[in-house]
Design a protein around this nucleic acid. Structure first.
Lengths: 133, 133
DNA sequence: GGACTTAGTACGTGGCACGTACTAATTTAG
DNA sequence: CTAAATTAGTACGTGCCACGTACTAAGTCC
């Protein structure tokens, strides 16, 4: 197996685990990403679309469904009355943290557990180097 | 950034690239995986579901859409007349190869290009170690 | 003030995934 | 050897996701 296969498989593995964890909390992968983005931002719909790589028309429904479940709210912007800021609620924050914690535990059990500490550091370093490009 | 964030982000990055490449060939990520599985197998619908981690009722539609586009065919099993084997067509093979090649080029440009040869080997080794667990 | 641009929604289409309910073929029990 | 249970697959309804197009309302530019 070469680098291409290794990274391809790894990405499916990690995304699969994340999807499963999210599913246990009745969240889709996209909803989870949404909440993740909103943990440290209060973006407009447009900015949200940029962060998630989605069209603005896709964001409408995504936020609508999250709002129905009480995970986010929309507030009118005061600077520009056309735009709305999306803000995560307490419930949303709790869910996001729960998923994040469980994901961290999955990494610990499935990655960290099979690598020596030095290997973990090296893997982190290499991946970061790739991501920063 | 720690190991958890690094692997999370990497998986989104890789899957995003793969989805984009697949999209250029009018394939979804799932269709691409389907064709990938079929490159070296002629599974029944059930086996296909197991490989992809999907319910059998999900596989029906997936294969149906692929069949409409001439990417796969279904043939009746001779051992068990209840089951059908899914087989990739020449067109399907061509598409699968095109996506795989382009993905390999993406890895070369975005991963291999920023790592020294020894680092690439080390990354591959570490990822394989994780996957084999 | 009128033309243009921008933020967001509405709606229709298509893919994806599931659960449930069904048919047909096969296997198992009695 | 039939009757019951299991298995392979499809049909259908639901909901999520993503997009393009068309629209409204608000802001900007002349």
């Amino acid at each position: 197996m070469d680098l291409v296969d290794a990274l391809g498989q790894l990405s499916f593995e990690v995304q699969g685990a994340l999807a499963e964890i999210a599913g246990k909390h009745d969240l889709s992968l996209v909803q989870t990403r949404l909440l993740g983005v909103l943990r440290d931002r209060e973006p407009t719909m447009q900015e949200l679309g940029r962060h998630l790589g989605l069209d603005k028309s896709s964001v409408t429904g995504l936020v609508l469904r999250a709002q129905r479940r009480g995970l986010v709210i929309r507030t009118a912007s005061e600077l520009d009355r056309r735009s709305a800021h999306v803000i995560i609620t307490e419930d949303g924050l709790r869910l996001a943290s729960a998923v994040a914690d469980e994901f961290a535990r999955w990494i610990a059990a499935n990655v960290a557990a099979v690598l020596a500490p030095a290997e973990q550091r090296e893997l982190t370093r290499l991946v970061k180097k790739v991501l920063s490009s």
